[in-house]
């Protein structure tokens, strides 16, 4: 019982801390994130620069704090678009007749099974590296899991006795969507959103590390990672700052998703009993 709730609480708290610290970056950051030479070059962590400095003498901690804003904002916007498209497609397929449903389901399953990274790689490879290209490539495929989940939820919701009864009484599709489908949609979609948001951040960070995402000198987690691939072996502390920021954020999102799933599962079970 406490298991899911504990995970959920922990995840929400950590996530809130991450978001708040990045929002408060201008006040929290000890240095200007783009100013060069605020300290010695490539300084190891400790003292004034508690995450060290990069090869231009910029303060890593300040850059991590400020960089989170771009990363979180852009990822959040992409997630919103992906959820909207996925839910719309899923509802459309789910409400459509059996023929279209079958075709749509196969199509969506095919996209879900395909590694998103390859599509993003192709997109970036042909358009040149930028955060916009990575997120644009992600947009092409990331809606599919949402469409798949929404479709199956719509189908099962419409099969519920209450939905069948409402339909028999002549309820319109819009009414069915609002009263029968929607309430069953929110919870699972929230779970998937948390998990997928974490995956998206991790994927974007990984591709940025390879130099495909945001380009230096932007203070953004991915761009910071892109700058240090060559020197990762000699100065690992430069990977540590943005890397751990990504890790903490993704971990928090995963915990939120998992905890939420547990709590919701238990709620459904309780109702079923």
């Amino acid at each position: 019982m406490t298991r899911g709730r504990g995970l959920l609480t922990a995840g929400v708290v950590v996530l809130a801390v991450v978001v708040l610290t990045t929002l408060a970056a201008p006040w929290l950051a000890p240095f200007d994130p783009v100013a060069q030479g605020v300290g010695p070059r490539m300084a190891a962590p400790g003292g004034v620069h508690w995450l060290g400095t990069d090869r231009f003498g910029r303060d890593t901690a300040s850059r991590v704090l400020h960089g989170g804003r771009t990363t979180l904002l852009q990822t959040g916007a992409t997630m919103l678009a992906v959820i909207a498209v996925g839910a719309a497609v899923g509802i459309a397929i789910g409400l459509a007749g059996s023929r279209l449903d079958d075709l749509g389901r196969r199509l969506v399953d095919g996209i879900v099974a395909f590694p998103a990274v390859i599509v993003i790689l192709a997109f970036v490879g042909l358009r040149g590296p930028s955060l916009a290209a990575v997120l644009g490539g992600a947009l092409l495929v990331w809606w599919a899991p949402f469409a798949r989940l929404t479709r199956s939820l719509v189908r099962s919701a419409l099969a519920e006795p209450s939905a069948v009864a409402a339909r028999a009484l002549g309820a319109s599709r819009a009414h069915l969507l609002r009263t029968e489908v929607w309430p069953r949609l929110i919870g699972p979609l929230a779970v998937l959103t948390a998990v997928e948001a974490g995956q998206l951040i991790a994927t974007v960070a990984g591709l940025s590390f390879l130099g495909m995402g945001a380009q230096p000198p932007a203070a953004e987690w991915g761009a910071m990672l892109a700058e240090v691939r060559g020197v990762a072996l000699s100065s690992p502390h430069l990977v540590l700052g943005p890397g751990v920021a990504v890790l903490v954020t993704v971990f928090a999102l995963t915990c939120v998703g998992e905890g939420l799933r547990d709590v919701l599962d238990r709620a459904t079970l309780a109702v079923a009993r």
């Binding site: 974490g198 990984g206 590390f209 890790l247 993704v250 971990f251």
Partner: peptide
């Protein structure tokens, strides 16, 4: 859960 969150590039860099 934690392993899902650890980015491969971070794990790789540390392991290296």
């Amino acid at each position: 859960l934690a392993a899902v969150a650890v980015p491969s590039f971070l794990l790789g860099t540390i392991a290296l």
